[in-house]
């Protein structure tokens, strides 16, 4: 019986994720979102393609492209957070709660749709990017397998944290508060400029957060080994990458179930109605 229940939850969650993913590629507003940032980033990359960096052995565009991939991967955290808050606001989470196994399947569905959407967004950016930017090491299987494990580990590190954030914010409006710290985090994380050229203390802050490590991991996958020279310790530091991202993953996986359970427990029709009334008051 229990096995059947778990299978149902996974199957339903998978279906939910696939359906939501399909929806996000079949409506205008979402399609715009899927393409807007990748295209903007492509423009940035294009403008930086000929800008030399350091001793001139690399163009800034070449350094930046993998970093942007890493940044996008980390942003799945924000997507997760926003979607969960939105689902709470419109009652999707309450519906899940009224359904047997619904909250678990809802979470599985979100993981599927957010990861799927992210992979699509990365491809939208990466495929044209490969044509614009010279000097990437994409010929070997090793590059792609590094990219795959960095991405996978990055998702395990960021999605649970995103789910926690999504549970903490009461409304999609409140989510706006996240924007500034996120931008700051990206700013210090050496995505658009190697972190070694920034002051030391900035580098230390950057190394706390997953964005830096995802950027580093992506660079290690797509740049030739000689490019490690501009990194901290002149190394790709895979061990440290696994360590820090692993810590975030453990933290997220420890926190997320409890926080999500708490949020789901507090959901009720009147809670939903109260939030809606508040939202209407703001509009009116």
């Amino acid at each position: 019986m229990n096995g059947a229940v778990n299978r149902t939850v996974l199957r339903a969650g998978w279906q939910r994720g696939v359906i939501e993913l399909r929806q996000s590629f079949t409506n205008g507003a979402d399609l715009f979102n899927h393409f807007f940032w990748p295209v903007l980033m492509l423009v940035v990359t294009y403008l930086l393609r000929d800008v030399p960096f350091g001793d001139g052995s690399f163009e800034l565009g070449t350094l930046v492209l993998p970093g942007i991939l890493g940044m996008n991967a980390a942003m799945a955290m924000v997507t997760m957070s926003q979607l969960l808050t939105a689902d709470r606001e419109d009652g999707t989470l309450l519906r899940a709660k009224a359904t047997p196994g619904g909250t678990q399947a809802h979470l599985v569905g979100k993981i599927v749709s957010v990861s799927g959407g992210l992979v699509a967004d990365l491809a939208i950016f990466l495929v044209p990017g490969l044509l614009i930017v010279p000097g990437l090491a994409v010929g070997s299987l090793g590059s792609w397998s590094t990219l795959a494990w960095v991405l996978a580990l990055g998702l395990v590190a960021t999605l649970p944290i995103g789910a926690v954030l999504g549970s903490l914010f009461a409304s999609t409006r409140a989510q706006g508060l996240l924007t500034l710290p996120i931008l700051a985090m990206i700013g210090v994380s050496g995505i658009f400029y190697p972190v070694t050229s920034l002051p030391d203390w900035v580098g230390w802050i950057a190394q706390v957060f997953p964005v830096y490590w995802l950027g580093l991991g992506m660079r290690s996958a797509l740049l030739p080994d000689s490019a490690a020279a501009v990194e901290i310790d002149e190394s790709w530091r895979h061990l440290e990458t696994v360590g820090v991202l692993g810590l975030w993953a453990v933290l997220g996986l420890l926190l997320a179930p409890a926080v999500l359970r708490r949020t789901a427990r507090r959901e009720s029709g009147s809670a939903l109605a109260a939030r809606r009334d508040k939202a209407l008051q703001r509009v009116g």
Binding site: I19, D90, G91, G269, L272
Partner: peptide, 17 residues
């Protein structure tokens, strides 16, 4: 939960489905 059906005051969920 599987034996209980719930219709709340107003749902807005799953608008895209």
């Amino acid at each position: 939960r599987a034996r209980v059906g719930v219709v709340l005051q107003s749902w807005r969920d799953h608008g895209r489905w």
